[in-house]
């Protein structure tokens, strides 16, 4: 039983932040609540943000994709605006999270604000240059998603509210693919890799390689990206891709735990990065969950 003193229901974004700041004691925002009820944090009150108008998914006139922080994983997995964006990279990540009843209430904001190193949506969003919109009582701020996470279960928020995530229209046309290694489909990921490439004629424009479960926070392998970005596709032979994959494996900072060793995780970052780069360059947008541990046979 979660010993809460008060359940506050906010009617607007401003009211939600005010309710959070008001005290007394410690408060937590709640949307779907599927993570909070697993490990109820010690706090005095929660602020329900289900009724503040943050569950929308929309394309702006400029073609950017905006996903409200209270949009559910089921909505994100099935909304045509998301399934049709960058090969459906984000919707596939949402579809592989938890099970159907969890996805009914679990939200993208909760997945990000819970800030686990294995957050299911983080690699896909990082690979598409996601920008976070954050509200305070009377101001708003936006910042790149890679600056949002400050450590395991820690973010920059400090009482402020994540309002939503925006992906630029340009990234909607990127080719992308992702893999998520797990022991069983529902388990927390051992290793996550998402790759997105802007294909500009015979050349790669932007290149993004995002990793999850292999560092204190979801991260980008920027040194590896630099080896691919701006290159002629003809120059990206298997040796070059293997080099990039090895660099990505060097960039991550995995730990040993009961799910996998750091050594295995690092090895798999290399294997998956190499395969995903190759498959994206070949035009495939495979976002299958990868629950078969086939990486071990590489």
């Amino acid at each position: 039983m979660w010993e809460l003193k008060e359940y506050r229901i906010a009617g607007s974004i401003g009211e939600a932040v005010a309710m959070m700041r008001r005290g007394p004691g410690k408060g937590v925002y709640i949307a779907g609540g599927t993570d909070l009820f697993l490990f109820p944090p010690a706090c005095d009150y929660v602020v329900d943000i289900n009724h503040v108008g943050m569950s929308n998914i929309a394309r702006t006139p400029d073609g950017d994709l905006f996903i409200g922080a209270a949009a559910t994983l089921h909505d994100i997995a099935t909304c045509p605006l998301v399934t049709g964006f960058a090969g459906g990279l984000v919707s596939a990540a949402a579809a592989h999270c938890g099970n159907r009843p969890v996805r009914t209430t679990a939200t993208i904001g909760g997945n990000l604000c819970n800030a686990l190193p294995s957050a299911d949506l983080a690699p896909a969003l990082l690979a598409l240059d996601a920008v976070c919109y954050i509200a305070d009582e009377d101001s708003q701020e936006s910042l790149p998603l890679e600056e949002f996470f400050t450590g395991p279960r820690r973010t920059v928020l400090d009482g402020r509210l994540l309002v939503g995530i925006a992906l630029s229209a340009a990234s909607g046309g990127w080719r992308a693919a992702a893999r998520r290694l797990t022991r069983s489909a529902e388990d927390i990921a051992l290793v996550q890799v998402a790759v997105a490439l802007e294909i500009d004629g015979d050349r790669v424009g932007a290149a993004r390689i995002a990793l999850g479960s292999v560092a204190p926070v979801p991260m980008r392998a920027m040194l590896a990206e630099a080896l691919v970005e701006g290159e002629l596709i003809a120059n990206l032979d298997p040796d070059r891709l293997a080099d990039a994959a090895a660099i990505a494996a060097g960039e991550c900072e995995p730990i040993d735990d009961h799910r996998a060793s750091a050594e295995y995780r690092r090895e798999m970052v290399g294997v998956l990065t190499r395969r995903l780069l190759a498959s994206v360059l070949a035009g495939s947008t495979d976002t299958s969950p990868g629950t078969d541990n086939e990486g071990g046979a590489a």
Binding site: I30, G33, T34, L38, V46, D48, P101, V102, T105
Partner: peptide, 8 residues
């Protein structure tokens, strides 16, 4: 469908 054990 929801898991009522993890819904407030």
């Amino acid at each position: 469908p929801v898991n009522s054990c993890v819904v407030a």
